[in-house]
């Protein structure tokens, strides 16, 4: 069992100029649980996710990881870079576009953070990197550069890069949206394994099947607002809010043939 973090989001607001991207968001993410964020594009799901590790700076409100405020020392007072980096060490993130470093092999991609951030020796980091890559089923691709890997393999390397750092919380920003349909499964399987090990996970996704089967909690967002937070069954099968019903109707229409 992993040490797993909790996340408390309170009254978070985020503006881009006059546009309000997040409106008074309140959300609790329990340790060891999987939370899926769903909703139409532009609804603020990714923005909210990125506020959790402060890649996106929220303007007001609080995001707390295990009780500790991230990004600010006090309201309006930015946290020093060193302290922010310290907090980010235990938060893994996986991006829609994988964002592997193209000049490094799969193994070097995974080892980089261990060497530069965790201060490990090169040999120790490479041993750990090999373990992490084996865990995502890529033991035979360690020496490949990203350009020699399929999208699904690249995303699994990105997951290995995150889990090698032994995070207590994992953020996934539409991890399968850039993948060809036949490659989605291999990435979701790795994510299911992680969820089974008790990792706290926050996942922005359009994979309703994953949300239905793996999530403990589903959050529906629209226009920067949190519309519904409930069990997958209540949100996906018995939604009460008209906006959720309409979103799911569109989703089912598009996915039926």
């Amino acid at each position: 069992m992993l040490a797993a973090s909790s996340v408390e989001i309170r009254k978070v607001n985020k503006y881009y100029g006059d546009f309000q991207a997040l409106k008074d968001i309140d959300l609790s993410i329990l340790p060891g649980k999987v939370t899926c964020l769903i909703g139409p594009s532009g609804s603020g799901k990714s923005t909210l996710l990125r506020c959790i590790n402060f890649l996106e700076e929220y303007d007001s409100g609080e995001v707390r990881i295990d009780g500790q405020l991230i990004g600010y020392d006090a309201p309006g007072k930015r946290m020093p870079g060193r302290k922010l980096r310290e907090m980010r060490r235990s938060i893994g993130m996986v991006f829609q576009q994988f964002n592997l470093w193209p000049h490094m092999t799969a193994r070097e991609n995974v080892a980089e953070g261990l060497i530069r951030v965790r201060g490990m020796s090169k040999s120790e980091a490479e041993r750990r990197a090999a373990e992490a890559l084996a865990k995502v089923g890529l033991a035979d691709k360690m020496a490949n550069h990203p350009s020699r890997l399929s999208g699904g393999q690249q995303q699994r390397v990105a997951i290995a890069r995150a889990i090698a750092m032994e995070p207590k919380l994992m953020l996934f920003d539409e991890p399968t949206s850039a993948l060809d349909p036949e490659l989605v499964g291999e990435v979701l399987n790795v994510m299911k394994t992680l969820a089974g090990e008790g990792m706290t996970m926050v996942v922005v996704t359009h994979e309703m099947g994953f949300a239905a089967h793996v999530a403990d909690q589903v959050v529906f967002m629209e226009k920067g607002e949190l519309v519904g937070v409930d069990s997958p069954d209540r949100i996906l099968h018995h939604p009460e809010d008209a906006r959720i019903q309409s979103f799911l109707r569109t989703y089912h229409e598009r996915n039926s043939f």
Binding site: L55, R89, E112, G113, R161
Partner: peptide
């Protein structure tokens, strides 16, 4: 690719 490095605390 810069954000990926920031996200792991580099």
């Amino acid at each position: 690719q810069i954000e990926a490095a920031r996200a792991i605390g580099m």
